[in-house]
Amino acid sequence: MRHIISLLLENEAGALARVAGLFAARGYNIEALTVAPTEDPTVSRMTIVTRGDERIIEQITKQLNKLIDVIKLLDISGADHIERELMLLKVRTHNGHDREEIKRLSDIFRGRIIDVTARSYVIEMTGDSAKLDAFLANLAPSQIIEVVRSGPTGILRGERGLHL
C-alpha cells in the first residue's frame, strides 16, 4: 500500500541524510521525498511517499521516530487528507494543431502555460499524483521534452494538523 508520511524534523545539516540513510540501510522503499523549512526556520517539513504492508510501515514510522532529529511524524494517508504535487512540463509545439490541442488539454486539467516559444510550451500543473499521471498519459512521448515533478506533499483536512 502507498503511504504518505509527514515529518517535522530539526533543520540541521545531515538530517536529510539520516532519513535517506535509514531507508537505504533497512531496505525500505522510497518513492518520493520533499523537504523544505517551515515558518519556523529551525524546523523542516518532510513528506515521504513509501510503499509496504502494515508491518513494514509500522517499522518505518518507528525507526523514523527513533532518529534524534525527527520531532514528530504522522502517516497522513491513514486520515482524510489533501495531496498535491507540482509538475513543470515542457512540450514540443511544432505545428498549429499541436499548439491548439495541447492548450485545450492543459485547460481541461487546469494547467497554466507559463512559457511560450515558437516551438514549445512550459505548462505548470498541480494536483494529486494520479491527475498528473493522467495528463501525461494523454500526450504522445514524442511531444514531451522534459518533465519536472516535485513529488507529493500533503496536509490533513480540517482543524487537526501536524505542528509543534
Binding site: 545539516a13 545531515g14 541524510a17 539520516r18 540513510g21 540501510a25 534524534i68
Partner: peptide, 16 residues
C-alpha cells in the same frame, strides 16, 4: 567521519 559513522551511532554531531 559523520557520514561514515552515521549508520552505526545513535546520533552524531559535527561542531562548526
Amino acid at each position: 567521519t559523520v557520514g561514515i559513522t552515521r549508520p552505526c551511532v545513535k546520533h552524531n554531531f559535527l561542531v562548526k
